[in-house]
Computed example of a mutant assay.
Amino acid sequence: MAEDPPRNFRSAYYEKVGFRGVEEKKSLEILLKENPLDVEKLSTFSQRFPLPSMYRIHVWKVLLGILPPHSDSHTLVGGYRREQYQDVLEALTVMRFIQRATPQTQVYLRMFQLESQLLPRCSETTPPDSKDEDFLSIARSMEEIVEDPVDCYWLIKCFVNQFSNKFGDSIPHLPKSLEHYLSVEDPRLLNHLRTTGALAMLPGGANTILTNIPRCCCVRCMVWDKVISGSCKILVFVAVEILLSCKIMMMKTNRPEGVVNFLYNMPQENTDAIVSKAIDLWHKYCGTPMHPV
């Protein structure tokens, strides 16, 4: 039976801009009324659907453990989180690790280092270097999404810890997964990237994929929803779709550095379509979780 084009167009558009259909939104609201919250069901919902923007930060905080499952404790715990933020900020100021002119993302980095017992000695303090870039790029990306600095810091901190603890063993295997799925989707493109040496030079870090590809907030958040709720593999499919979207240009060049430079400076006009196709590809190969309610 032929599908209804106008209805499908509206559904796709609403998904891209973060507005869910009535049934999905009601399902999430039902989940958020439970006490205690069912974190597994919230995670399943986030895997299946983009979160509505009005609930996104709250759900992220629950999924990352910033807020507990018991909703009646949220105000109290939120107050503790804010006090801890202020205490750490004041300590760094007194120790002269940060000043008023310090960029906010570097403030978050020093706070994270202090709480992780990784803060260098004051006499050895230097500007952040390459080993800090993963954290700073995550911080820059989260700062564009979250307005409140307290929420922003806690989301960065807990996301970085979760990413390392939960996905640490999986990250080294992402490049191989990328090759596998690209070989299925477009073996000719994969062979070209291998032959020219471009494949080995591709920006392969999961952090790079997550923070640098979609510049439009609404589509980037759709990827964050999946990663925060437990899927590191979504990043592989975003990378696959980026390569497929750039196929024409890539097939025209035999210079690997040209391919890499293009990817780092790729046009942003089609990132919403790239992310939407990547999520479809992810569901195709990894399956779709059952509806939580």
Rank of each mutant, 00 (worst) to 15 (best):
W60G: 02
Q113K: 13
M201K: 13
D280I: 02
E185Y: 04
E23Y: 12
L243V: 00
P69Y: 06
H283R: 15
E83W: 08
E185I: 07
M95S: 15
G168Q: 05
S116C: 08
N254E: 15
C216I: 11
I274E: 01
S46I: 03
Y55T: 03
I98K: 03
L193T: 05
F19Q: 09
V240Y: 02
T288E: 09
E133Q: 12
P149R: 04
K277C: 11
P5A: 07
H283N: 13
L76C: 02
S245A: 13
N270E: 12
Q104E: 09
L89A: 12
E143K: 15
M201H: 04
G168M: 02
M95Y: 11
R110W: 10
T271H: 12
G18K: 10
S71L: 13
Y285G: 07
I274C: 03
D38E: 09
H58C: 00
E23W: 13
E83I: 12
S276I: 01
N270S: 13
L136T: 15
R140N: 13
V17D: 01
P120M: 08
H291K: 14
F135S: 06
F163N: 12
D280L: 08
T93D: 06
P68G: 04
E179W: 00
F163Q: 05
E124N: 14
E40G: 12
F262P: 01
P127H: 11
A12M: 12
L32W: 00
V227Q: 01
F45L: 05
I274W: 03
S276Q: 13
K26Y: 03
Y153V: 05
P214S: 10
L202S: 06
A200W: 05
C152E: 12
L190Q: 00
L89Y: 15
Q268W: 03
I242R: 03
M249T: 13
A198V: 02
G78Y: 05
N212P: 01
L202D: 03
M250Y: 08
F97P: 09
C246T: 02
R110S: 07
T271Q: 14
G204W: 05
V22H: 10
L89K: 15
N261Y: 00
Q106V: 10
N212D: 10
Y55F: 08
V259F: 00
T288M: 12
T105K: 14
M250N: 06
D272F: 04
L244A: 01
D225E: 12
M54Q: 14
I57R: 11
Y153A: 05
S137N: 09
F45I: 03
Q162L: 06
V150G: 04
L67K: 00
L178V: 15
